[in-house]
Design a protein around this nucleic acid. Structure first.
Lengths: 239, 239
DNA sequence: AGCAACTATTTTGTATTATAATTTCACTTG
DNA sequence: CAAGTGAAATTATAATACAAAATAGTTGCT
């Protein structure tokens, strides 16, 4: 049985990730110049064409800036597209400071209650049904993995029910980034489903179209889950 | 007097915008294939190299997907990077539906009160000084333009004072997008500064480090400004 | 000496061509 | 009819040449 073909064959993507990590990881500092294209291409053993495709992508993400004669230089961090999935991913993987986790959690705490309220106002019956299904999967979960999957599904369906693609897009980016720290929001294997009643309250408020009730229920939910995250993230983040 | 040199000289960027607009504007529908590179390059009068660089950028934005033999096809809208500044910009320029403006405004109403609260907790004295300066510029404004500039500056400094780059990045994207509809949030030339007292309340709460007061003041502010936006955007959005 | 105009140089931007890799699809063969 | 086989189409990569822009240096003029 063959493991996998994986002749990557998207050289420019590899280059994007390699350079992206160097920049976000701080090995290439803002203001610094990249080697000129011909050299860099040789150093990375790719053609200038492939390298340039990568450079354009990184420019689009705001990480670098090219000018003739001057060369290609790393831009200051304030210009980076912080909400780009790649940029955020590199940041999480390479600079997992406790303060940054806090920022991600803060974003989640801002979005989710608002989304719950919006969902309570605007959810369709089909979206409600999907949310119910996710909740029931959570209730039926007997192990941590099943719970985690259902939990994520619940929140995704809730966000979708808010009927604002900007909101769900933001949530998905944030959630993916947070996922790199802790696969699940549950405390441990034994009492993973302590948050079930809180999810029920959110669901019921959305079902009954009570925005403020839904918001408050979600505030309580994320407030409790923050405590868990603190406990789990505290040690590794400090190291 | 020469107007400007502007030998654009970033062909791939032009191509990005041209194709991006076609896709987001709906002229190229999801599932549809672009002409193959050689043809498309000829149609747009650019080299295949420049075209490919553009294609890579659009792929990074989630708008298209290339595969050998199959070709390059437009992806479904759920995969688009909705929070990308370009994508959002095209969306605003090409599909200015009233419902989409509502979504943008909703995002703003979620972020800004949260940012005000965070700023009240974490602002440095330097950030407070910058905020004060922006407020004073608003107070001193004698015409609409000056007011608008100072207003934007106030909100930007507030967001920066929240010390969460994800939050300020999101705000900047949203604000830019909203800017395409109405250059300013003021009602009209005569009473453009009615919101001045509300801004003062926000500033004072931030100064005194009262998060909940700051949040509530900002809620009131954005709530009022929403009414203005409705009045200004109502007509053109419906047409 | 100082300033302006020109020139040379360096680096990215664009174009062109050739070849490789991948995937689909039709076709063949057992 | 199934499984493999090969041809064709399209993107992926590479290599090369030249154009444009911006900087730095140089020259020449006052």
């Amino acid at each position: 049985m063959v493991v996998k073909p994986i002749t990557v064959y998207n050289l420019h993507k590899q280059v994007v990730h390699e350079l992206g990590r160097l920049i976000v990881g701080g090995e290439l500092k803002p203001g610094e110049n990249l080697p000129r294209e011909e050299l860099l291409a040789e150093q990375m053993s790719v053609s200038r064409s492939a390298l340039r495709e990568a450079i354009k992508v990184l420019s689009a993400k705001g990480l670098i800036e090219s000018r003739q004669k001057t060369g290609t230089r790393v831009r200051d961090a304030i210009y980076w597209n912080q909400l780009d999935a790649d940029v955020l991913g590199w940041r999480c993987a390479l600079m997992p400071t406790e303060s940054f986790v806090e920022k991600l959690v803060e974003m989640r705490e801002i979005i989710e209650p608002a989304a719950a309220a919006a969902a309570a106002r605007r959810r369709t019956s089909a979206q409600l049904a999907a949310l119910k299904e996710a909740y029931e999967a959570m209730a039926a979960a007997t192990d941590l993995d099943a719970w985690a999957v259902a939990d994520l599904s619940f929140h995704e369906h809730l966000l979708r029910a808010a009927n604002n693609e900007l909101m769900s897009s933001l949530f998905s980016v944030i959630e993916t980034a947070l996922g790199t720290y802790f696969r699940l929001s549950a405390r441990n294997a034994s009492n993973f489903n302590v948050a079930l009643p809180q999810h029920l309250k959110v669901y019921e408020a959305v079902q009954r179209k009570q925005p403020e009730v839904a918001r408050q229920a979600m505030v309580n939910l994320v407030h409790d889950s923050r405590k868990n995250i603190r406990r789990r993230a505290g040690k590794p983040a400090r190291s």
